[in-house]
């Protein structure tokens, strides 16, 4: 961290400390709470997945419509094996998926290993407790963020617009260091807009609604919701895919935060103050 600050200080053009107020208190608090909730929800969700380690593209469970299955075997006299099947294609995943860390210092047959789950040991009841509580934390963060943005009338700043489309490729070339300067943009660059629009309007609503659709009580009062996803088991598959999508986003997000002016980036999400780059603005 020290080294980064020092390097910046040595470059006069980057030293300008004039900052703008980039993120409101609601945005900052909901961002970090959402991040915490996401980690808890993924880990407890994998714990819940382990209780029925397969996903079917159907309403009821149906082995003929199985998309993903993780299984493990430990037969006396043979080495234990873990096998992951995707669309019927078997991949040996011993010591990672199907057979691996049991969360208590040994190994056993289980789909996702103990270090990925909450709690580490196999305990569906506890996993559900964490999951059903932090699901509300995630929903509360989302609602608070949207309510505050709409009230400030600046939700449009983060939404990808038709005018941004021609700027997507130049922005990507800039990130790949194949172009010297980014295309001029507002508060968010075109790729950020594309990513945040997908997360805010596709992945997060999808993960919340598909999760809700799994509940028999919800299916009873809002049957069309479960039907939209193709039934209960299919909703479980959508729920899993939305998680994969959000994990993909988080990996890219964290990589970019760390690889582009990390101190400035993280400060903006803690104090709200952000030093604008040469090609950045504060508008759309």
């Amino acid at each position: 961290m020290e080294a980064t600050v020092g390097a910046l200080a040595a470059r006069p053009e980057a030293r300008s400390e004039a900052t703008v107020y980039r993120h409101s208190v609601t945005t900052r608090v909901s961002h970090w709470l959402f991040a915490l909730a996401f980690v808890v929800l993924v880990m407890s969700g994998l714990q819940i997945f382990n209780a029925a380690p397969y996903l079917d593209a159907s309403d009821k469970s149906d082995a003929h419509r199985r998309v993903l299955a993780i299984g493990g075997e430990q037969t006396p006299g043979a080495n234990p094996t873990g096998v992951t099947q995707i669309f019927g294609l078997s991949i040996r995943t011993t010591h990672l998926f199907g057979y691996g860390d049991d969360g208590m210092g040994a190994e056993s047959a289980r789909a996702f290993p103990g270090w990925m789950t909450l709690p580490g040991y196999q305990d569906l009841a506890s996993g559900r407790r964490w999951h059903l509580f932090f699901a509300w934390v995630m929903v509360a963060c989302g609602l608070a963020y949207f309510a505050a943005s709409i009230r400030r009338k600046d939700l449009a700043l983060i939404v990808l617009r038709r005018e941004d489309l021609p700027k997507l490729l130049p922005m990507q070339l800039y990130y790949l260091k194949l172009r010297k300067e980014p295309p001029p943009h507002g508060k968010y660059n075109p790729l950020q807009k594309a990513a945040y629009t997908t997360v805010l309007f596709v992945f997060t609503p999808l993960i919340v609604l598909s999760g809700v659709a799994l509940a028999p009580g919800i299916d009873s009062i809002a049957g069309p919701l479960t039907a939209v996803f193709g039934g209960r088991q299919f909703a479980r598959l959508w729920h899993f895919l939305a998680m994969v999508g959000l994990i993909g986003f988080v990996l890219v997000h964290v990589t970019l935060v760390l690889s582009t002016d990390v101190v400035n980036n993280i400060r903006s999400m803690i104090t709200g103050r952000y030093r604008l780059g040469e090609h950045e603005g504060t508008g759309i």
Partner: peptide, 9 residues
């Protein structure tokens, strides 16, 4: 439909 807490139906 019988929905098990484990996840299957």
């Amino acid at each position: 439909r019988h929905d098990c807490v484990e996840g299957w139906s």
